[in-house]
């Protein structure tokens, strides 16, 4: 039985904004499942429905076997939620945040302290445990947020854009922690608009745009569908080599332009030595070779006709504004 089950899920805001137009997917226990899509795609809406924060307009959603609409309290006991906008309490210390969380989840006092220590260690915040959160950097807040999401040992952890606006080092740390946690058996559902995050972290990815799932699968599979790796070859005799290449079974396509060959193959690493062998037997010299892999962005372009790259700046700007606003509070 899948741990998350979604069927024809729909959400219309205010009777007019169709944020989800009937999505269906399953998440298996123990997976890291990613929702990849641009701003406004419906990622947060999906997470909020699954976390029982909002009610869907139609369709079915089950988490750990419980219907999110009919048995919200049972779902709440099973899940951890790390929201898109950091929401740990600025005016409490890291430890106080965790203590409050532990109490709200009815953790017995004996377990509380031990578990809080563990979580602080997991996210590397032991030394700052008793500082007010308002003195933390964005990355530290995120980590605290994750520690909170995990404190009560949920079966499924939902993370809405967990590394938005963070520097590369902090992002790596968070990925590491999520992998670690996943090894211990926690199912992870995350949303992101970073293709590298979806690619490197997720077992399976759903591409979502304008409230619809456009593709779903392992990142490697999705990328293969685009048409495989691209090899660019410089050679002294392009025409001769091209003819040969077109007859090879592992070559998907090959074109020649100004003495340069552009070849798509399923696996670039495996194809290069084979192509070199063929070239040698033909007596053709290869002067240079470059290999480029398709990215999930290519997948995204294929399925939606637009690129994810344009989104980034916008989101980072938003995050900065948000942090500024937060500092001005009180």
């Amino acid at each position: 039985m899948p741990i998350i089950e979604v069927r024809d899920l729909r959400k219309v805001y205010n009777g007019s904004v169709a944020a989800l137009k009937g999505i269906s997917f399953d998440v298996e226990e123990g997976e890291i499942f990613g929702f990849l899509g641009p701003n406004g795609a419906g990622k947060t809406t999906t997470v909020h429905i699954l976390c029982t924060l909002i009610t869907p307009t139609g369709g079915l959603a089950k988490v750990c076997g419980f219907d999110v609409v009919k048995e919200p309290d049972k779902v709440r006991r099973k899940i951890g939620f790390v929201p898109q906008d950091i929401s740990v309490d600025d005016d409490l210390t890291a430890r106080e945040n965790l203590e409050l969380h532990a109490k709200l989840y009815h953790m017995p006092r004996s377990l509380r302290e031990k578990r809080i220590e563990e979580m602080l260690e997991l996210v590397g915040l032991q030394e700052r445990a008793d500082s007010l959160v308002k003195t933390f950097s964005g990355g530290m807040r995120r980590r605290l947020e994750i520690a909170e999401g995990l404190l009560h040992s949920p079966e499924v952890l939902f993370l809405d854009e967990p590394t938005i606006g963070l520097d590369p080092a902090s992002r790596m740390t968070i990925w590491e922690q999520l992998r670690e946690l996943n090894k211990e058996g926690v199912t992870v559902f995350l949303t992101t608009h970073y293709m590298d995050e979806a690619d490197r972290l997720c077992d399976r990815v759903a591409i979502i745009d304008l409230g619809e799932i456009r593709a779903i699968g392992r990142p490697s599979e999705l990328k293969e569908e685009v048409g495989g790796d691209v090899l660019i070859l410089k050679t002294n005799n392009p025409d001769k080599l091209l003819e040969k290449l077109l007859s090879l079974p592992f070559v998907n396509s090959a074109t020649s332009q100004d003495g340069t060959l552009r070849i798509t193959v399923k696996s670039g690493e495996k194809a290069i030595p084979l192509i070199f062998e063929e070239a040698r037997s033909l007596g053709v010299n290869i002067e240079a070779v470059s290999l480029s892999k398709p990215t999930l962005d290519d997948v995204f372009v294929r399925h939606t006709g637009k690129s994810l790259r344009d989104e980034k700046i916008d989101m980072i700007e938003r995050f900065k504004q948000y942090m500024l606003m937060k500092r001005r509070r009180r």
């Binding site: 924060l53 899940i79 309490d89």
Partner: peptide, 17 residues
């Protein structure tokens, strides 16, 4: 209002209380 704006409110709502 503050809790809603800064997301803490959602955190309370997600908790099994």
């Amino acid at each position: 209002i503050w809790d809603k704006r800064f997301g803490f409110f959602n955190k309370l709502l997600v908790a099994p209380i």
